[in-house]
């Protein structure tokens, strides 16, 4: 995972609530065996609408997206995070995220930042003309107008994001503990071994 600690630039002011994973990347784009190139299909149905923010030159290359409640609800497809990253987005700010999306975002160094609706409303306004700054170290979102919104983040996730930690590599350091658990499991619940079919 690539390390990330700051994101600054324009933000797509999307604002809608319940943006689901089929909106972020429709199923037809999932027939890939690669992580790359999914930006082309990102937000396809929103981009089909004339005058949408994604095709507005004002926001070209924006690294941030602002959305409403329950962003990323629906499917577990990590393609949603890959597609957003491929589009050049490094952070999403919303009042809430689906649990699976927020995990997928984290695994790909995409910041999923939770702020209250009042802060979202203010950022939506600023985003139309100015840059937004996100600092993971200080856990703040700021604007050129002295707005300063603090956000919460799980300390483990923060550490992994800032240091670009390979989570599998980290877990593999616990291999011995996993072996101990497996041995105890075989003794306590031997019926858990599936019958071969």
């Amino acid at each position: 995972m690539k390390a990330i600690s700051r994101v600054e630039g324009r933000a797509y002011p999307v604002g809608l609530k319940n943006i689901d994973t089929d909106v972020i990347i429709p199923a037809v784009w999932l027939k890939t065996i690669s992580r790359a190139g999914l930006g082309k299909g990102a937000f396809e149905s929103l981009r089909a609408v004339p005058g949408n923010v994604f095709d507005d030159p004002e926001y070209a290359g924006a690294p941030i997206l602002i959305a409403g409640d329950n962003f990323g609800c629906g499917s577990s497809r990590e393609h949603a995070a890959w597609a957003m990253a491929d589009l050049g987005i490094s952070a999403v700010i919303a009042p809430s995220f689906s649990d699976i999306f927020s995990g997928n975002a984290f695994k790909n160094g995409l910041l999923a930042i939770v702020l209250p609706q009042a802060a979202i409303d203010r950022l939506m306004e600023v985003a139309r003309t100015y840059d937004i700054h996100i600092d993971l170290e200080t856990q703040t979102v700021t604007t050129p107008f002295q707005d300063r919104f603090e956000f919460e983040i799980d300390p483990f996730r923060k550490h992994c994001l800032i240091n670009g930690v390979d989570e599998i590599g980290l877990t593999l350091k616990s291999s011995d503990a996993i072996s101990v658990y497996e041995a105890k499991l075989s003794a306590d619940r031997p019926w858990l071994a599936p019958n071969p079919v």
Binding site: G103, K107, L172
Partner: peptide
């Protein structure tokens, strides 16, 4: 789970 977690479960 997402694909990164699929890989994590496969490996660990």
């Amino acid at each position: 789970i997402g694909t990164s977690e699929v890989e994590h479960v496969l490996a660990t």
